[in-house]
Structure formats: C-alpha cells, structure tokens
C-alpha cells in the first residue's frame, strides 16, 4: 500500500506539467509599405529536412527587414532565423525564434553587405535545417 501511494504521488507529479497561454505581447514586426527590395534568395534543405519558399530583405526608412516568403519547413525544436556570413552558422546574427511571424527586423548595427546567407538553425541541438544564399536585387 505504501509503495502504491508513492507511485500514485509520483504519477500525480508527472501529470502536473503545463504549458500555459502566452500572455506577453511579443515584438511583432510588419513589413513597412515603403520598403525597397535589396536582397532575395530561395531556401534549400539539409539532409532529411523539407523546406519551401524564400527570403527577401527590404530596406525601409527605419532599417532593414527580412521577410520569409511562401515559407514552410519540417518541424524542429528551437529553430532560429540567422543572417549569416557563410552557409554554416559561424558568423551570424540571431534574428530570433522561427515562429508564426514572417517579418524580422535586422538590427541597425548590422552591415548587411557582410552577410551572404539566411539560415534556419536549431540552436538547442546545433543542427542546420535550411540555407538561403542571398542575391542582390
């Protein structure tokens, strides 16, 4: 009986895990209507990953914005959008989590001419999912 009680208690504990509802309003970015297209590219996947769509980088009066265009990708944990100086995540700018949002602001400190790729990268398991080489418009 004692053992059963302990087991029951343990099961009760394991049943307590919960992911609630997000109540904080995340920084949401929308594409500036006065944006001018500067760079674009199409994603290709790494082994075992499926990806569709491309990326466009626009210049706006307030800075640069990155838009994922017609984009979908295999699900993965902890996916990030990187602006990268190569097709591997070595020198990069982490633009944040890959969520439902499609537009990401690029920090003003970034010299865009130094960045040649956009990557979708799983940070937690250090696994590259997709690569988009950038071309100047």
């Amino acid at each position: 009986m004692k053992k059963l009680s302990i087991l029951g208690l343990a099961l009760l504990l394991f049943g307590c895990q919960e992911e609630g509802v997000l109540t904080q309003t995340p920084n949401s970015t929308t594409l500036n209507p006065n944006a001018t297209l500067r760079y674009f590219g199409d994603f290709y996947p790494t082994a075992g990953i499926q990806v569709e769509g491309g990326v466009r980088i626009y210049q706006t009066p307030g800075g640069f914005q990155l838009e994922l265009n017609g984009f979908s990708i295999s699900s993965g944990p902890d996916l990030k959008v990187y602006l990268s100086q190569a097709d591997t995540p070595s020198n990069f700018v982490n633009l944040g989590n890959l969520t439902g949002q499609t537009v990401y602001s690029i920090p003003n400190a970034v010299n865009l001419s130094n960045y040649s790729h956009v990557l979708i990268h799983c940070q937690q398991y250090n696994h590259l999912f997709a690569i988009a080489p950038l071309q100047e418009n």
Binding site: L13, F14, C16, Q17, E18, E19, G20, V21, L22, T23, Q24
Partner: peptide, 15 residues
Amino acid sequence: TLSTATGSFGTRTQF
C-alpha cells in the same frame, strides 16, 4: 522538484 512560474509571459509548469 516541480515548479510553476506565473507572470506577464503566462504560466509554465515543469519538473
């Protein structure tokens, strides 16, 4: 240990 944190981001419970 098991912990629940509640604040402006929401509620998250986990071991």
